[in-house]
Nucleic acid binder design. Structure first.
Lengths: 337, 337
DNA sequence: CTATAAATTTCAAACGATTTCGTAAAAGAT
DNA sequence: ATCTTTTACGAAATCGTTTGAAATTTATAG
């Protein structure tokens, strides 16, 4: 590997000058800069991130803490999309991304220790148990953090508009003439709480009393679980005319149970999902759902994190709401009042 | 941050001794080792990966090159699963993983340059255009590489058994009494080639002549595209009795078109998918498909890569086949001969 | 008690870059 | 011609760790 010394030798200048020329210091003459840059290119010079980090204390590396997809209750594709967007934006802003795990050299350590070991400039946290001790330790450390879909004091977070989203989605059903609207929510979490909140609000705004037997819990991303809840709902003496599912994928469980009973969507029963992933538009019938703007969420997280990293003193913790949109499908039927 | 020097001061020994004690050199006395280890723990010492790398030339960092060229990338569940498994196994073996991109500090560079910049010990490549110049450059460099689902001379690769898989899947249909079996394959690639190969073999083994009008190309992960091909097939004067889709997700496009014609699966037409992702088991009817063992593929890639890294001289390039299994669903109907 | 071997520990030089401070030369001012 | 300023560059320290060789201490032998 060519180093700065090799170049300095080839150019007949000192390593210091090479470094400065390469990094655009103004004190180096135009000719020297040109010479150095040219030889660097010719010799296929690449700076060494480690050496640079050692001296500058900047790794240009941001950690991502995304708990593994299958174990997490939340929608797999939604987080994959966020991760992808995080990656793209990070690249654009000059950062690489590394997964933060609880291992170093095969030994178990805390997330924070891992971050320090790799000297991450900052960390994006999503899709984890935010109330677990190792996560809290990291959040409360000196490491710049941005969380997604969870709020901590004094920590910036990017929030998908779960309250608004579910409120609008519920309102959409109400405006289509539904009064008996069931909501199958996912397992307890702050996201779930917000969606419930939105659901209740929409009902309240339209003066529809809440029926507790229409509010059931299932597990995110688990069609079997939603299938079971759908069964419960349809077995009620007075079944709902619309069912809201925890996420798009869970809708598949709904389809199964609804189909089993010979009912059809949306003629006999209306349904909605949540997420707005590709699946929603290719199932039959296409699902009316709330699209969460995963791209924007990923982008904003990194932008905010980088801002925090690069202007640590002036940058303030901020809660950023990213709004989604209603994605109309063919799974909701308008009922006459 | 506590450094080795802080510990050396606290213990009254030299930094060298601390380093050796921490790294288990046998020449250090038991008492010193204990003392050093204890104080290191007390002072919350964490080694600095960068400094260590600088000296040892080992980053304990493996790069992953997972591109989302076709917009599938990370969102494609099969690859997400592989990535996840790669991550887990890497952690277990003491490596972190970093995404290899084509950017450093926002500037465009080659993959190889990025690897050198971060000094990746090795790279797992999957899901990219293996025939593009930047990928070839990386593969042909001195960096240890393992590829997934693509073969290069002298480079280890992990192969999902696409030939066998599709052969067995096709045979399964034949054994169920089908003779008119259409195969909608994905876009051209080595994987597609192998699956075609498996399809042809199965037909040949059973003495069934190939009907070229039953072999159509669609795009992976694109139900609309498969929907269109399904239409073509069903419009044939002599339509097939079974359709094999490029992947599980594409099956959804098939369902749409088949349903539109009032046909049902599997009574009127049998179908199969490929991948064996969760979706296959929760759609209706559950899909008969070939399950690719993404977990095993990820695991073996990292194992082989680490072997290559750690025993560079003795380790030989190897092609490892990971076999999958037929996942029975309810989408194939047995026909009387 | 030496002399020698064995067991510990320390020295000091790296690794590859950045950066502060100093200096020499060139340019500008008086 | 002298003094001041500016411009361009270099010397050397430093970041935190590792490692082979040298030095020191301790143990063993003669």
């Amino acid at each position: 590997m060519t180093t700065i010394k090799d170049i300095s030798r080839a150019c007949g200048v000192s390593p210091a000058t090479v470094s400065k020329a390469l990094n655009g210091y103004s004190e180096i003459s135009k000719e020297t800069v040109d010479l150095v840059r040219r030889t660097a290119k010719e010799m296929h010079y690449m700076p060494d991130a480690a050496a640079r980090l050692l001296k500058t204390n900047i790794s240009h590396n941001i950690g991502v803490l995304f708990e593994d997809g299958t174990m997490s209750g939340l929608t797999h594709e939604y987080f994959s999309l966020i991760l992808n967007s995080v990656k793209k934006e990070a690249e654009k802003l000059g950062y690489d991304i590394t997964f933060i795990s609880r291992y170093i050299g095969g030994q178990e350590v805390s997330f924070l220790e891992h971050c320090r070991y790799r000297r991450c400039d900052g960390v994006v946290i999503a899709c984890v148990d935010f109330e677990s001790a190792p996560v809290i330790e990291l959040v409360r450390s000196e490491v710049p953090i941005v969380t997604i879909d969870y709020t901590f004091d004094n920590i910036s977070c990017i929030l998908s508009d779960n309250i608004e989203g579910n409120r609008k989605l519920t309102s959409h059903l109400i405006e289509a003439g539904h009064r008996k609207i069931a909501f199958i929510h996912g397992e307890e979490s702050s996201v779930t709480g917000k969606r419930l909140n939105g659901y209740y609000r929409a009902l309240a705004e339209h003066g529809i009393p809440v029926r507790e037997d229409y509010v059931l819990g299932a597990r995110y991303h688990d069609p079997e679980s939603s299938e079971k809840m759908t069964r419960k709902l349809l077995d009620l003496a007075d079944p709902p005319t619309a069912i809201m599912y925890p996420d798009d994928f869970s809708y598949l469980g709904g389809i199964t149970e609804i189909g089993r009973r010979g009912l059809s969507i949306p003629e006999d029963i209306s349904v909605t999902g949540y997420d707005g992933i590709k699946l929603a538009s290719v199932v039959h019938p296409a699902l009316t759902t709330w699209h969460q703007d995963a791209d924007e969420i990923g982008r904003r997280s990194v932008q905010k994190l980088v801002e925090t990293i690069e202007h640590r003193k002036t940058s303030e913790a901020e809660q950023i709401n990213v709004s989604g949109e209603l994605l109309g499908g063919y799974s909701v039927r308008t009922r006459e009042a």
